[in-house]
Design a binder for these strands. Structure first.
Lengths: 340, 340
DNA sequence: TTGTAGGCGTTATCAC
DNA sequence: GTGATAACGCCTACAA
């Protein structure tokens, strides 16, 4: 009990039976005498036996484990996604490794190596997109994987589940334009990230449709570090004129609102602001922020389903390119009176 | 390359050397000719070899994997903690499983079984505290573990790292009392949870010190479900008189603020509100919420250090009972003019 | 109904 | 310096 881990061998010793009789009894195989089975089961429970699935996986070839590699679980966007993936995976008896890349290429590489060396059955990854090397490595290695939230646009055919970022960017921008904001600051994510690029395309399309051209001075790249947004917003308010703000995600939007409040600006009277991810749907925050809903739950479940499919049907040569719809959710941060 | 996983055997075949030589060369053992070593390493990289640490662990007995079992990673409180644990673990070459219990006893039991069956070297767990059974099971099993955020107060001696909940509850309550709020609604967590109990003790002590008695009608238990807080706050505002609110955590506090705003109440003029966890330190949200800082980062790192210590020194019979200090961080949700 | 043999991929030990 | 062998814990296949 206390101390070393109980193995089938230990039980076999105590029961005076062979290791594999124990193994089969515990797995409810037909060919064991009911009486023996009961004795063994009781004994196993008594001794606190917990199977060593790692040893089993060496034989079977699969671990019922997948790796989830994201930038940062502390960011609610990823936290929610990871939670939903774990929950869905659990239903299929899978366990998940969580590894953060902090948007760093080397950490991402290490994460993938770690995952593969731990024999995961598959990987769900939100790629840092510093290059395609790491993804290419997974491909060559033959490990099943699915990209989540970001994709590669060139000819590569990596499977992915994303949300309709272009549409989201369009909807957010159009919403602001429709409400009379002609100069819209776009606090975008890192340029190298596909979702940032695509949201920008939407931002541009909305402008064009309204007969406006995008002012490049109003498009800013902000990183994940808290101070980043703060500095940018402060600088922009002091130097540029604009009345609308479209933020790459809700966390950035919140920080922008925070900074504006500190500077004594009123929302939405002076600045209307809209985010992305609609975290409000999972977590109430005091000041209701307009946002683009990206159905993280659906993305998470779809990504897992696809991954499990690829794991169980390794020879199926199908490509998965899923784009989950995005919708506009408006609240008081862009329009004063609304009851959401 | 593509398809099946490369093993030492494959490399050995190609190199015309024994499996063993390959293994030792890749691990930079001294007794391999430098030239051979180079050849092997190049070949391994070329073939895309990634060691199978699972197989190795069968021999070595450790997996360099730990399980982190929490209620819900999507809750920023846990998200931040998990992130910090992962980051620290990574530095020690450990990988983490993340499993959510959703505060459910059975899921917790399953999580522990899964972790043990996957041969983790140790477990960091925020216990659901429905009973001590699950914890007792880990103890009997002999797996090293550390409780985080909650503890058991009876004679049991499970190792833990918590924050000073009693002091936190006291500071929060005293802060409100000091600002003239004599009737303070306490939106507490589940009663069975030690941190909820201890924060309540602090709430009570602050009242007593001020010569007041706690009105039991003002102490409410709220669950994790979003709707829960909403209903409670609405009901309390309509039926009871109070001017201060102390929430078990920031997420609950935010939702309370949200509901109050919807009801047209002003903060802090009509209701002063303070939370717990100081999530604002990691994530800016528009309306700065007073809170109790519980140093999640420090708790996470301490818990990991202790766990690693217990893993490496299994015979050391030391008890770890760490209480990280809590401090008051006040912002505009309790006092109108402050620049935090 | 139960036991024996072999193997999953790696590593420690010891022999050559 | 390199190779053979056994072992980690379990499971499949087959033998008794």
């Amino acid at each position: 009990m206390d101390g070393k881990k109980i193995t089938l061998k230990d039980i076999a010793g105590r029961a005076g039976l062979s290791i594999n009789t124990i193994s089969r009894a515990l797995k409810d195989k037909e060919d064991i005498a009911p009486a023996t089975r009961e004795v063994i089961k009781t004994l196993a429970k008594e001794m606190g036996y917990v199977g060593n699935s790692v040893a089993g996986s060496l034989r079977s070839g699969h671990t019922r484990t997948i790796a989830v590699i994201v930038s940062d679980v502390a960011n609610p966007h990823f936290g929610i996604m990871v939670k939903d993936i774990e929950q869905a995976a659990r239903k299929h008896n899978y366990t998940i490794f969580v590894i953060n890349t902090e948007e760093d290429n080397e950490l991402e590489e290490r994460a993938i190596h770690t995952a593969i060396s731990k024999n995961v059955d598959g990987i769900i990854i939100c790629p840092a997109q510093s290059s395609t090397e790491n993804i290419e490595f997974m491909k060559r290695n033959g490990i099943p994987f699915v990209l989540i939230g970001r994709r590669f646009n060139d000819e590569t055919d990596y499977d992915y589940v994303i949300c309709d970022d272009e549409k989201g960017g369009y909807l957010a921008t159009k919403h602001l334009l429709d409400n009379g904001h002609e100069r819209i600051l776009f606090l975008n994510g890192r340029n190298r990230i596909s979702s940032a690029q695509e949201r920008y395309m939407g931002y541009k399309r909305a402008h064009e449709e309204a007969g406006l051209t995008v002012d490049p001075l109003l498009v800013k790249e902000v990183g994940y570090e808290p101070g980043d947004t703060r500095k940018t917003v402060k600088m922009m308010v002091e130097n540029e004129s604009f009345t609308g703000i479209f933020a790459f995600n809700d966390v950035i939007a919140w920080e922008a609102m925070y900074v504006l409040q500190m500077m004594g600006c009123r929302i939405p009277e002076e600045y209307a602001i809209i985010g992305f991810d609609n975290i409000h749907s999972r977590m109430f925050v005091p000041f209701p922020l307009s946002s683009i809903s990206s159905s993280k739950g659906e993305m998470a479940r779809r990504a897992l389903d696809i991954l499990l499919r690829k794991i169980s049907e390794p020879n199926e040569k199908k490509s998965y390119r899923e784009v989950v719809d995005t919708t506009l959710i408006w609240r008081v941060s862009t329009i004063g009176n609304n009851e959401n």
